[in-house]
Design a protein around this nucleic acid. Structure first.
Lengths: 356, 356
DNA sequence: CTGAAAGCGCTTACAG
DNA sequence: CTGAAAGCGCTTACAG
């Protein structure tokens, strides 16, 4: 199919050896070339439409100038696409392309994101698991053994030998609860999924910290049963109509049957904080139907429609910034800096955004 | 940094030549290998943690098993991320990775998506412009000259030498107008941007076709001045808080000042069709404020919140399917099929989806 | 300043 | 069934 001109062709056209052409084209500083030869080589290269063969360069140990981004599946979740955009914006300026890597074993015996590094198709990896999953233990061993440049996003820091970017879930919980106290709340309901992971622990800890100094305020915690009361994806998900909320099942039933009754005594200044964003609009609708108005806040802004401006407070996922930060830490690794760094980003309290 | 074992190391360990190792590992069918040797080679490979050097393979003309996706900037627009997900799902099953390519000139003298193909870092390109832009004329020439596998998404077909996936904007306009007629509309306002591109022409043509048989229904067309009345992005866009709508300026002023007055005579069964999705929620809010209810439809579902279920009809962008289709057409090219194909996908009428 | 040569890691006709 | 050898396109010490 494609078999363009090589440095040999240029060399022949100009009447020099391939080595000379290479020196000119790669601007090797350890080799001086006469202005005239340089001129002729560059001209011939342009004329022939020369494009260097990337594979040959990489074979000679050049970097691939490509960075892998390991995202398991859901590029459509703005949680991930925002980060991706941040990574891209930061890395493109440095001349890097991005390669989307999966978690499965594609060609080799290792997960795709490791295999591509080992095959030298990418120079490093930014890893975004979901539900707190980091790389497999086997992958971690290879990362350590080969010193693979690796950055982990939002997995809960646990002293790994690579850089991580984390979000300050604890502070988010604190800020939201604190703002509700400032709004006059005397009762607070905290609604969280039963999943007992790093993020959920941190969030609840933050909420409790805000309440520690206020024994006059009651806190009630309710857990959704995520094995049963999930927000459901419809079959259309994968059929081209986007991911869709089946709000009338699962969680909605739990909210209507359990949560709303628990709010019976709540006064207008009291508040509900939901851990996941998706719970908040559902709750808002149900409360509105019941003719009830409370402070509502969500510790994530994912799935909180911008149309709820002023009705629901959210802690915003700083996805784009996080992506930029991941890129920055990876660049440090690529530049040879081996010391793992951790950056923890705030999740500022604000209004839900209108995402495109 | 990384310098793992090569076939030479395996050969030495087993006591055969590198050629034999290669035959075993690549399962070359033109060469039979004794079961015993094969066994030993495979064992040694596993033991040493052998991973083939991708660059060396590509240098020998193997495909890179990587496909470029050219998206100019906005990965956060679900319009693009849905397509990307579709492409990925289809192509990952075939063993391909995706590389995000930009439009700028990164390393070479050609646009990034062309250069990466010429450098053999990717085997082909799926191109998603925005605002109808296709590849540059220079890029088109290279695509033709080198027969680069290339698929164009949603640019308006104009007889190019490569495959394209289009959306049926004309039918969308027809279906929406038709549904409003079925809903009893006697007056219709069609609100479109002044941009005179393929999509807008098709959409209006569709609306007019639906009205052709109904001389009793009046159609009024209004154009937004996109050079002046744009939906504005706030500076936060690139600062990590997502893309945000500045609804109180630009278009909103035009809608309030020009469009709402034009609807003074409209009765409840009459309707407004907006070309862009983003106009519809704004219009809905303004009408609601004015205590007015009309049929509202948008010819795209981008930016139409799922909270408007039942209030606004939309034509859905079949982004995921389109991605799958792009992947399918590219696979055909990669398999050697040179005949350009065009697929035109329907944009089914429905409710706005709750996008994650 | 320029050229001849080796080598990166792999594959594949070809000869045994 | 196995091995010796050439070559993909480039870079880079090294000798002139």
């Amino acid at each position: 199919m494609r078999s363009g001109p090589t440095i040999k062709d240029i060399a022949r056209a100009v009447g020099v050896t391939p080595a000379t052409v290479s020196y000119v084209l790669s601007q090797n500083p350890r080799q001086s070339i006469s202005a005239q030869t340089r001129q002729k080589v560059l001209e011939a290269a342009r004329e022939l439409g020369y494009v260097p063969n990337g594979a040959a360069k990489v074979l000679r140990n050049a970097p691939s100038y490509c960075v892998g981004v390991a995202i398991e599946k859901e590029l459509m979740l703005s949680r991930f696409s925002m980060v991706l955009q941040g990574i891209r914006d930061r890395l493109e300026g440095e001349g890097y392309n991005l390669m989307l890597c999966s978690f499965g074993q594609r060609h080799g015996i290792y997960p795709d994101y490791i295999n591509n590094t080992l095959e030298r198709r990418i120079d490093g990896v930014i890893f975004m698991g979901k539900d707190n999953t980091g790389p497999t233990p086997e992958a971690e061993e290879l990362i350590a053994r080969y010193h693979l440049p690796f950055v982990l996003y939002d997995c809960g820091y646990t002293g790994r030998p690579y850089s991580t970017v984390e979000l300050d879930y604890e502070q988010a919980g604190f800020d939201m609860a604190d703002s509700m106290l400032a709004g006059g709340a005397r009762r607070l309901l905290y609604l969280r999924p039963d999943a007992d992971n790093y993020q959920e622990q941190q969030r609840e800890a933050g909420v409790r910290r805000a309440l520690a100094a206020r024994p006059d305020v009651t806190l009630q915690v309710m857990c959704t049963d995520t094995t049963r009361d999930m927000v459901r994806y419809t079959p259309q998900d994968r059929l081209g109509l986007g991911i869709e909320l089946k709000a009338d099942e699962g969680v909605a039933r739990f909210l209507a049957g359990q949560v709303i009754p628990a709010l019976a005594e709540f006064a207008p200044h009291d508040g509900v904080i939901t851990s996941w964003g998706v719970y908040a609009p559902l709750l808002y609708s149900l409360l509105a139907q019941a003719g009830k108005s409370l402070q509502i806040g969500a510790l994530s802004d994912m799935l909180v429609s911008g149309m709820l401006q002023g009705r629901i407070k959210v802690c915003r996922m700083p996805g784009y910034q996080a992506g930029v930060e991941c890129a920055r830490l990876l660049l440090a690794r690529l530049a040879g800096d081996e010391t793992p760094q951790t950056r923890t980003l705030p999740m500022p309290l604000g209004n839900p955004a209108m995402y495109f």
